[in-house]
Design a protein around this nucleic acid. Structure first.
Length: 118
DNA sequence: GACCTGACGCCCC
DNA sequence: AGGGGCGCCAGGT
C-alpha cells in the first residue's frame, strides 16, 4: 500500500480516537482499553500512541480524562508539565492521589454509554 | 529485517 | 493482591 494511503488511514484513526475522547463528560474519566473497545479498532496501546500526538490536533483534546485501567495517570509525563494532567482533573473535581484517580469505580465512563442516546 | 520500546491490559499464578 | 508473561501494533534504531 502506498505511503500516502497509510498516512490517510492513520489520520482517520487518530481522529476517531480524538472524537471519542472529546465525548468523555466533564469530571469523568475513561481508559485506553475502553476507547479501543468502543472503536473495535487497534489496541489500547495504539490509543496511547494516538493521544501522544494529540498536541498536533487542530482542536484541544481533553486527553487528561484518559487513564489506564487502574485509574493511574500513566500519561502524565507527556503533558506540558508533569503535573498538568493532575491539575486539569482536580480542576474538574476529580480527586487524585499518588498519581491515581481515587474514586475510579464511580468516575469511570465507558463510551458505550453514548449508544444509549441514539 | 531483527530487536526494542511504549500514555495498555488480560491471564495466571 | 501484586507481579511477571505475553499479545498487541506502530516507530525508531
Amino acid at each position: 500500500m502506498p505511503a500516502k494511503k497509510q498516512e490517510h488511514k492513520k489520520d482517520h484513526y487518530f481522529s476517531r480516537v480524538y472524537d471519542v475522547t472529546c465525548m468523555v463528560p466533564y469530571g469523568r474519566v475513561t481508559t485506553y482499553g475502553a476507547i479501543a473497545d468502543y472503536l473495535a479498532l487497534g489496541s489500547a496501546r495504539m490509543v496511547g500512541w494516538a493521544l501522544n500526538h494529540c498536541h498536533f490536533a487542530d482542536t484541544v483534546i481533553p486527553a487528561h480524562r484518559v487513564v489506564n485501567r487502574l485509574g493511574e495517570l500513566s500519561g502524565r509525563l507527556h503533558f506540558a508539565t508533569p503535573t498538568l494532567m493532575q491539575e486539569r482533573l482536580e480542576a474538574e473535581g476529580v480527586e487524585v492521589s499518588e498519581h491515581k484517580v481515587v474514586k475510579m469505580n464511580e468516575l469511570f465512563w465507558h463510551p458505550r454509554e453514548l449508544d444509549q442516546w441514539l
